[in-house]
Design a binder for these strands. Structure first.
Lengths: 220, 220, 220, 220
DNA sequence: TTCTAAACGAGACGGTACGTCCCGTCTTGTG
DNA sequence: CACAAGACGGGACGTACCGTCTCGTTTAGAA
């Protein structure tokens, strides 16, 4: 949110302008990372309900005022922590559409199985409901994860595996959505084949998607 | 939680035994509905973050002790409210698998578009993360919604439209999951075809699923 | 402040109407005293600067919310604590004006020497400066201490020791004021006769007052 | 605090040695006065509770570090501000003890009526209670104001109006103390003759003191 | 009818976290 | 070196809410 309404709170995204050196003591660049790490650790030990601003501050060796200097409230810190956590997103390129999708589905499966990974989705859900941008968190998902997934299809098209009008967005949504449902169901229902073993689940989902994309796949 | 550990709290499910008439003043039968309605209204006005036990009690004209007499904590009340809200779940039976799936997808799309409906998913997500049963809320989803959706496939098999080993669970997950992703994305991304207009979105999702189920569909 | 403007906050003076039994759980009558005592103890151990609402709450075994339910803020609690502390004010009646004044001056001297007693004056000074009523604290001083001192002169008049137009208010002010100055000076100046030993100080002050009142004293 | 323990803070009294020209940028001579004025203004607008170091710094157009370079803490700045404010203390010499006392009492009365003047007493009270020296503030009072008042009696003795053993300290205390009580009572009690009109109050107080000093006054 | 158990409204209570404010220290760049 | 700016660790404040408790009142079946 570059042209933010009120100038008093500069927020964590400030100081991005290259030349303009600010006056006063500069913000400690390490500090932000230290806090984010502390937040994730705190979460790991106490769960989301037990995640306290005081707790994060204490663990990071930071004053509470500093937290609120950078993030307007707990939600924003939360979002930043998760955002930071998922920053490492590598491209998928195994050489084939089917195996690429398997990698994607499998990594999502693992990601959501980890409570920290799952929290990311939880936050997106909250954000979607409240109408808040939640610190631009969604931009990360839509700006990093989704493009990475879409690139899989672009490469498939380039290789001649699929026609250019393949509904990539839909398939991405299907894969993400189904994995979310798997993660949602896990705590309750481990029987009945709703949540089969991971490898089986991934295989069947990809089978289904390949069949669904049939009309757009070339014979080769 | 039928065989609840502690006997002090009888909970909202108590008094189901037919003959045993309890001594003392009987519970007000209207009250429960009044509270649940108040909770939903309170949510509609203030959002989930602003949903307060005191607020619900005040709006329902009820003492806080009464709330805790019936629901063990806020989560349970929340779950009950949403559960009550979604109680009206009718069977889907249009006579054809494709049109049944369209009805299912379309009703989910509408349901998630409504903030109250979306809240239901939000609660499930929260519950899945915290490891809590959230007052048996998940049972409703897995016990009512999912069976209603699975029945669609049973009828298709009965009609001879699909083979008995059709992966019904997977398709249900795909439809639910994709609609969840649509709902998640809505606030941010109305362009690029990620969230197309509802009717188009439903049609394309069902097309995809029908193609994905191809191997299990009979020629007829 | 009986007909207080806003009815939402009832304050500590509420519930004085005899017949009207309030609804809801009644306030714990011991609690108030427990808190006040805790406040004084906390002060004794940590000094006024170290007097914390959390500290008082913890020592009294009370929630912070309860403190703020009864006293609007720290100043009010402070005032109440000191007020409560000085509630025990006994009449002075030795049978003679001179000896009565000596008792008054001596008790003030001792009172101000004690840090808790001195705090009372400190609060009055603060209150006078801020223009606040500080919880009606001043009423105690002007309603209890001053009348008790004035009674000394009334009795002297009744005994025929002094004429009825004796400037009692002035003399009371002189005694109080001079003792305040003694207390103020004590920490710095123990030499030069500014603050002589207590007994001497009292005697000389009373001597001075008796001489000052000369015109209003009867020969006997 | 000339031989201050820690050498890091040179304090406001530094640089008094005549010849020793320091290295580096010299201290801005106006700055100190600007800060002190800002402190008094800030007090006048917001009251003592609202007196903030940041606020003073901002109003004086000064960095906070500069404040702490010259005064060790808030109390010291406070003391310096009040001290500076009352620096203008002129000798009293009307030619007669009685009229001198009237001038003294009247100027005290006016001084305490002004909130800034009253603040000075408030600070002394605080200082006396906390056991702190409050930046040597008391020295000012005992070193400037008191001698000025005592000089009145010295001159009276020199003129032959009073005997040398007149209890000057006591009378000074009486005058100061009584005026303090007047100032304390003002906000609450404007009736009953506790706080009569200024001129009357002064006259009666001096009358009383003159009578009290009777034994030490010469016939002349 | 009288007694007794439970539901109910009201609101006090202990506790915990929030987000704000301020103090006194520090670390920059500029004069 | 002084100085303005402002980040920083620390800690108290006053608010809000949770879930529990203790009252007095109401409602019914049991005695």
């Amino acid at each position: 949110m570059p042209p933010s309404g009120r100038a008093l709170i500069r927020g964590v995204d400030a100081e991005t302008e290259p030349g303009t050196r600010r006056r006063g003591r500069p913000r400690d660049p390490e500090l932000e990372q230290r806090v984010l790490t502390a937040a994730v650790q705190e979460y790991a030990e106490r769960g989301w309900a037990g995640l306290t601003m005081d707790g994060v501050a204490r663990r990071a060796g930071v004053g509470k005022s500093t937290l609120y200097l950078r993030w307007p409230d707990k939600d924003a810190l939360l979002a930043a922590a998760v955002k930071d956590m998922g920053a490492a997103s590598q491209a998928i390129d195994t050489g084939g559409l089917r195996s690429d999708l398997e990698v994607l589905a499998r990594s999502l499966h693992t990601f959501y199985a980890d409570p920290t990974g799952w929290a990311m989705t939880r936050i997106m859900i909250d954000a979607a409901g409240s109408g808040e941008q939640l610190g631009g968190f969604a931009e990360v998902v839509n700006g990093i994860y989704r493009p990475a997934a879409l690139a899989v299809f672009e490469r498939a098209v380039a290789r001649g595996e699929a026609r250019p009008d393949i509904p990539a967005q839909l398939v991405v949504n299907v894969v993400y959505g189904t994995e979310i449902v798997y993660a949602m169901m896990r705590p309750w229902d481990e029987k009945e084949g709703v949540v089969p073993d991971p490898e089986e689940a991934v295989r069947r989902l990809v089978d289904f998607c390949m069949a669904g994309m049939g009309p757009w796949l070339t014979g080769q």
